[in-house]
Computed example of a mutant assay.
Amino acid sequence: MRQLITPRVIALLVGLFFALAALWGFVSGVGAVIGQGFLKEPTAEHEFHEHPNDYDFSFNGPFGKWDQKQLQRGLKVYDEVCSACHSLKFVAFRDLAALGLTEGQIKAYSAKKVVPGIDPVTGEPTTRPGTPTDYFPSPYPNAVAAAAANNNAIPPDLSLITKARHDGTNYVASLLTGYQAQPAKLVEEFPGAKTPPGLHYNPYFANLNLAMAPPLTTEGQVTFDDGTKSTIPQMAQDVAAFLTWTAEPQLVKRRQTGWAVMVFLLFATVLAYLSKQTVWAAAKPKKKV
């Protein structure tokens, strides 16, 4: 009598078992998510959180380019407003050459900054004027000092902020212009969601309330060198563009390289096809007359 349970049958049954287990896990997970979506009570965050506005930046799209004047304006907004609380630790002063600043301008700019140093005689920590090779200094000596000065909320470093947030550039610009009074409807529907003292309502922030006070408060808060009117939306968009550059300084160059690669691959594909036609032309069967 033939053996009915062969190794092949056992392997098939084991595979079927694991396939059914995976399918059951998938179906259960989807069911749980759908169930939560339908059964979970609405929250203030879900009902009143807003997606960032869609701004028209010069670097948007596959053929976008940096607007150096806008980046320089954004640098000034960061320098005069944001740098009081936020660091930019991954950006060196010499990197500002990409914004159109000359070597002399970079040296003068960095010399105005105070960076950590070491006393060459005693070896003790000290401070010194910055040089082009230094990185933007932190406004606080440590995280404890940063939290103590900001309602126990440590201001994030802004070097990569537009990459760390979904739709980062639009998010930054929207957040900076999104401060407003908490809607009466929100408090009526969710009495427990009233903005606590010391926090500020902003619908573009994930939980609607953040510790950072509105940094851009008045028109003309920053004076731009190119004469551009410094409205709050203008300043917000300019600093958002600047922070996009700090996070992805090679953004435009990478896109340009990508287009060059696409053209090369297209040319190589056509060349390969023509070569194949030439090489195999003699091997094609001749048509009978």
Rank of each mutant, 00 (worst) to 15 (best):
L101N: 02
L158M: 15
K112F: 06
N142C: 07
G74A: 04
G25A: 15
W66F: 10
Q234M: 09
E248L: 14
V14P: 00
V91H: 02
G258N: 11
A44P: 01
A268C: 06
Y109T: 00
G227W: 02
I34K: 06
L75T: 08
G130K: 00
G15D: 04
P116S: 12
T43Y: 04
I106N: 01
T126K: 05
A32C: 04
K69Y: 03
V239R: 00
E50D: 08
A240L: 07
N60M: 09
K229G: 10
A173F: 03
P155L: 11
V172T: 03
L265K: 06
F59C: 04
A211Y: 13
P203I: 09
D79L: 01
V144N: 09
R73S: 04
K284P: 01
Q250H: 14
A283F: 12
A111V: 02
F17S: 06
A283R: 07
E189Q: 10
R128H: 13
A173Y: 02
A241I: 05
G168W: 12
G192E: 14
A44D: 03
G192S: 14
Q3F: 13
L271K: 02
L4K: 00
P203M: 09
D134L: 02
L265M: 14
N152A: 09
F267N: 08
I118W: 10
E124F: 11
E45L: 09
D226V: 11
G15E: 05
L71D: 04
R94L: 09
D79F: 00
K69E: 11
G104H: 01
F17H: 03
Y171E: 03
N170M: 07
S159Q: 01
L216N: 01
L186I: 13
P52D: 05
P196D: 10
P139T: 04
V33K: 07
Q36R: 11
E50P: 03
L99W: 02
L13E: 06
E50N: 07
N60G: 08
S138R: 10
I106K: 00
S230H: 01
A272N: 03
V279R: 04
S275G: 05
G220C: 14
A184E: 11
M235D: 11
P116Y: 09
V81P: 03
G100N: 03
H86S: 02
E124G: 03
Q36F: 14
A260E: 06
N209G: 07
A213L: 12
K185Q: 11
P120M: 09
Q182L: 09
T231R: 02
G37P: 05
V239M: 03
K288N: 09
L20E: 07
